[in-house]
Design a protein around this nucleic acid. Structure first.
Length: 429
RNA sequence: GGAGAGGUGCCGGAGUCUGGUCGAUCGGACCGCACUGCUAAUGCGGGGUCCACGUAAAGUGGACCGUGGGUUCAAAUCCCACCCUCUCCGCCA
């Protein structure tokens, strides 16, 4: 969430920045939050003063009782009781106003970075690198993966649907191996600087709130209500909260972590879209890379994460481009964001396979991740950044389509060979 | 899931029965200063976080003893619920 103090010191600046999201209701919320903040502070000042009186009188009660002056103690108690009743009223008001303010702040999105391109929606996202495309595609590459993969016997959506329902996929044989190979490749490629973590896939409500999925996007997540747990939509969720509530030392930063995890998404609201094949599924594998940094370290880290994601795609030899997310399309928690898209000739589409984002201190404030400068007093809210190193299903699909040969078999990119148990070309089973 | 023990500051650990000069004894670590050729040892001094007021510093007030409620003039201390940790039992890949 954004820093309430900014609403006091630079409300206009925050309003101007948020206006670039082109979502009018956000500005309404902002003004409401600003008003509530003023109210909260005014109530708190009065409440604290009353509380101070109660504390003072209570001390006197103790003194009188020690001195054996029961009558004086009695009268002081009565006085304090009435003060306490007044305080109670204010305290209730304060709780109400604070709760309302907090709820509002949880829903107000992050301010876009000044350099994020202005735009209304995804059609305004500029391509900032590429596209890197071959001059032409052969006919045998123009076959969608949901046909070619099924023919090869490495994708069994029909039985996945039988087991779990619509929008679940199941890879088999070399297809399953290819999936896992992609994970291994993504992890091994970043192991030079990133600590591998295997986090829980089920998390608490607090954890899912820290990264911004809750309270606003509860419908997108799978809930395990009986236990108060949620299925993670990305490893970003547990990794970001790894240091929640902690005060780190500046010398520990930046912290770089990576994780393979399954990702669960209800895809509420996207029913009927991309229903075929692997493009949009409820459960998929992904390797995420993530960093906790100081505000100063963040811009360079954003570039590093983006470069790393790009190198993976480049290494696979897939046609790709990088786009920057415009202000109107920026996710709630995002400060600045880039997408890597891979071209899939079979379905003739650019597929988003990686999203690299800087969250400024938006998530870290929610998660309460701070750091201390060595030798200095006080704490500073950290910055968080993350990116998909590699989202498996869409890369898998792009490989199936780009590297399909005339005879229907599929060449496995060389960088994956070490993980394929000797399979260099996938043939029909 | 059952039974028991416990959660206090950077760490260890008192205080809880018997509510009140307890934001908290003591020890260790740490920081500063002194002493010392240097280290060690010793002596003296110092601490946290969050919120509000204050342009800021100083300062003042409030809050924080797992979390949330309650009782009370007053809660680390009493009551209730929940969470977590440890030990034993049960179950289990």
């Amino acid at each position: 969430m954004i820093d309430v103090r900014l609403l006091r010191t630079d409300l206009d600046g925050v309003r101007r920045a948020l206006a670039r999201r082109h979502a009018p209701e956000v500005l309404v919320q902002l003004d409401r939050a600003s008003g509530l903040d003023a109210e909260v502070r005014s109530i708190q000042a009065r409440r604290d003063a009353l509380r101070a009186e109660v504390n003072e009188v209570s001390k006197q009660v103790a003194t009188k009782k020690r001195d054996g002056d029961a009558a004086a103690a009695e009268s002081l108690q009565a006085q304090s009781r009435s003060l306490g009743e007044q305080e109670r009223v204010l305290a209730d008001q304060l709780d109400g106003a604070q709760g309302e303010l907090h709820e509002l702040l949880l829903r107000i999105p992050n301010v876009p970075h000044p350099e994020a391109p202005d735009g209304l929606d995804d059609s305004d996202n500029p391509v900032i690198k590429g596209p890197f495309l071959p001059t032409q595609f052969a006919d045998h590459q123009r076959v969608p993966h949901w046909e070619s993969a099924v023919a090869l016997g490495i994708l069994d959506t029909e039985r996945a649907t039988k087991i779990s329902g619509a929008m679940f996929a199941m890879q088999r044989g070399a297809g399953a191996t290819l999936s896992r190979a992609l994970c291994q490749y993504a992890l091994d490629s970043n192991a030079d600087a990133f600590e591998e973590v295997r986090p829980p896939s089920l998390v608490s409500t607090a954890t899912l709130t820290a990264t911004g999925q809750l309270p606003k996007f509860a419908d997108d997540a799978y809930a395990i209500e009986r236990d108060g747990l949620w299925c993670i939509p990305t490893a970003e969720v547990p990794l970001t909260s790894l240091y929640a509530g902690e005060v780190l030392d500046e010398t520990q930063l930046p912290i770089r972590m990576m994780a393979y995890s399954p990702c669960y998404r209800r895809e509420a609201g996207s029913a009927g879209r991309d229903t075929r094949g692997m493009l949009r599924v409820h459960e998929f594998d992904k390797v995420e890379i993530l960093a906790v940094t100081t505000p100063e370290q963040a811009p360079a880290m954003l570039t590093e994460l983006r470069d790393r994601a790009e190198q993976l795609i480049e290494g696979l030899g897939l046609p790709y481009r990088i786009i920057e997310i415009s202000t109107g399309d920026l996710g709630q928690s995002h400060h600045r964001s880039f997408d890597l898209e891979v071209y899939a000739p079979g379905c003739d589409n650019w597929l988003e396979v990686s999203s690299v984002s800087w969250f400024s201190d938006y998530q870290a404030r929610r998660a309460d991740i701070r750091f201390r400068k060595t030798g200095e007093k006080g704490t500073i809210v950290a910055n968080t950044l993350n990116g998909s190193a590699l989202a498996v299903p869409r890369v898998w699909a792009a490989i199936l389509e780009n590297f399909r040969l005339a005879d229907g078999s599929v060449e496995v990119p060389a960088v994956l060979h070490p993980y394929m148990r000797g399979i260099t070309t996938i043939h029909a089973r």
